[in-house]
């Protein structure tokens, strides 16, 4: 659907029937695969499917990107986590960066349906990494776009845009911020100054996704929560982002091993193809 970003429509009738905005699924590519948590970006109960959107950034997601229409994932479990508490706040500013748009899209659907005015602030590294733009435009009163390289919309970060809007005196009743951790953290720093309640969706490391392992524990307002069963949505003003950032790097070396392994595999495949 965009450069390096793939949308899968997956047959999962039970999940399609029950999923709500804010919830996620866990997928496994094959029998050796890890359990990957991914936002349920769309649900289509009529045809018994859900859509997941991912960026090919690691071994497993690249494996998924290489799959063809009609292939099967080994496992799809869901819907997991608490649905977002959708209320009529008034004017909701929805700030999404990069893949955070996949989470934001169903939120916008939900909050728009509940009668909120939607102000979308969307950003990505470059134009080709933006997606769901038409769908979001159709539901929003305003759509502000920015890119790191200026290839579309404003040149800059979503937080720059948000700051400008707030400084201009725009009034918002509620904020949702989703995307890479530094982006959510910067958004929250900003909205704190404006006393704007802000919901964030966290994606810590998870294993089972059902509350059994505690890998996804985060500190929120001084209390330890499991993102998989208590979240993934939390009050952004209460999240300990520093701890979360450190916990997310726990397997950085192993991710590097995976990258090297993948490079070695590619090299071997190339050599085999040559000979």
């Amino acid at each position: 659907m965009a450069a390096g970003i793939t949308r899968f429509e997956v047959e999962a009738p039970r999940i399609a029937r029950r999923a709500k905005p804010g919830q996620f699924a866990i997928v496994r590519v094959d029998e050796q695969g890890e359990r990957i948590p991914l936002t349920i970006a769309e649900r289509h109960p009529d045809r018994g499917t859900i859509a997941i959107v991912f960026q090919a950034v690691g071994y497993s997601t690249r494996q998924m990107a290489a799959m063809d229409v009609g292939d099967s994932l080994a496992d799809v479990l869901g819907p997991l986590g608490q649905p977002t508490e959708i209320r009529r706040y008034g004017c909701v500013v929805c700030v999404a960066g990069g893949l955070g748009i996949a989470f934001m899209y169903p939120e916008i659907v939900g909050f728009a349906e509940a009668g909120n005015e939607i102000i979308a602030v969307l950003g990505a590294r470059t134009k080709d990494l933006l997606f769901y733009l038409d769908e979001i435009r159709a539901l929003s009163a305003e759509v502000h776009i920015c890119t790191d390289d200026g290839s579309i919309g404003r040149h800059g970060l979503v937080t720059d845009l948000l700051r400008e809007l707030l400084e201009k005196g725009e009034h918002y009743d509620y904020c949702i911020a989703t995307g890479p951790l530094p982006m959510m953290r910067a958004s929250v720093e900003l909205t704190k100054q404006w006393n704007l309640p802000t919901l964030v969706s966290l994606d810590p490391i998870m294993v089972d996704g059902t509350g059994m392992c505690g890998a996804c524990r985060v500190t929120v307002g001084g209390e330890v929560k499991f993102a998989c069963v208590d979240g993934p949505d939390f009050d952004g003003h209460l999240v300990d982002f520093d701890e979360l950032a450190k916990r997310k790097r726990a397997f950085a070396e192993e991710e590097e091993i995976c990258r090297l392994q993948e490079a070695a595999d590619t090299l071997e495949a190339e050599r085999a193809a040559e000979s």
Partner: peptide
């Protein structure tokens, strides 16, 4: 780690055979 996480990584996810199995 909780014991649950540690044991789940190894027993269910086969992390001791990483990177053949993708859970570290």
């Amino acid at each position: 780690y909780s014991a649950n996480e540690f044991l789940t990584r190894v027993n269910l996810m086969r992390a001791h055979r990483f990177p053949d199995y993708r859970t570290p």
